[in-house]
């Protein structure tokens, strides 16, 4: 995928790829609390049936998943586990934060043990509000994510720039800069031009 990395894909091909990606999302279910039941109702029940949207909710491991739905209260004890889960997923990866607790702490906004929003740990693509959100709301979130994927510049996403979290982008750019600096030091101070 060298062409994709450099963002030099013809536009029709990009659209084709994006359509394929948006309708074959493998979702990893990360159910933590009440929202997990509504997520189970959306993904597992015959009434809501998420597979008609082209979403497959049963990957065996985060290493096979494109999308993770974090649903429920994230405590400070759980936060490192979620960070690790996100790092195990292959690029390009997307995150839906489901429910008030995962968005911002929800009813536990003043609790000593709850992480107030998972966007402090990992970048989030779609926030689904509610306590808990109805299954229809989660399906709406999935559809929004699919629209987002369709309009995406694949090159940017492959390089890890399409992500919403500016902090993460900044961190990645910092890491890239360090790496480039290290490489250029090895090469005797000759600057390396990165072609975007």
């Amino acid at each position: 995928m060298g062409l994709v990395d450099r963002g030099r894909l013809p536009k029709p091909l990009t659209q084709l790829f994006n359509m394929g990606r948006s309708y074959s999302l493998w979702v990893y279910q990360w159910g933590l609390a009440c929202c997990a039941i509504e997520m189970g109702a959306a993904f597992g029940s015959p009434r809501y049936d998420v597979m008609r949207l082209g979403v497959i909710p049963l990957p065996a491991s985060p290493r096979q998943a494109d999308l993770v739905v974090i649903s429920g209260t994230v405590t400070d004890k759980m936060a490192p586990v979620i960070k690790r889960l996100y790092e195990q997923m292959p690029e390009p990866k997307y995150v839906i934060s489901m429910g008030s607790c995962a968005n911002c702490g929800g009813p536990y906004w003043d609790s000593y043990s709850v992480t107030k929003g998972i966007d402090q740990i990992i970048p989030v693509d779609v926030y689904v509000p509610g306590c808990p959100p109805r299954p229809e709301a989660l399906l709406e979130g999935v559809v929004m994510l699919q629209q987002r994927i369709k309009n995406e510049d694949m090159g940017a996403r492959w390089r890890g720039e399409g992500s919403q979290s500016m902090a993460l982008v900044a961190a990645r750019q910092g890491a890239a800069k360090q790496m480039i600096d290290g490489m250029s030091a090895e090469r005797g101070g000759v600057p390396v031009v990165v072609d975007h």
Binding site: T75, K77, M78, P107, Y108, Y112, V114
Partner: peptide, 25 residues
């Protein structure tokens, strides 16, 4: 402890009608 949300401490800073919204969960 992975789901500990501190209910007993939170009830101390809520009013009585607010506590029901909390203990629902």
């Amino acid at each position: 402890g992975y789901m500990h949300r501190g209910y007993e401490k939170l009830t101390e800073v809520r009013t009585y009608p607010q506590v029901t919204a909390l203990v629902n969960r």
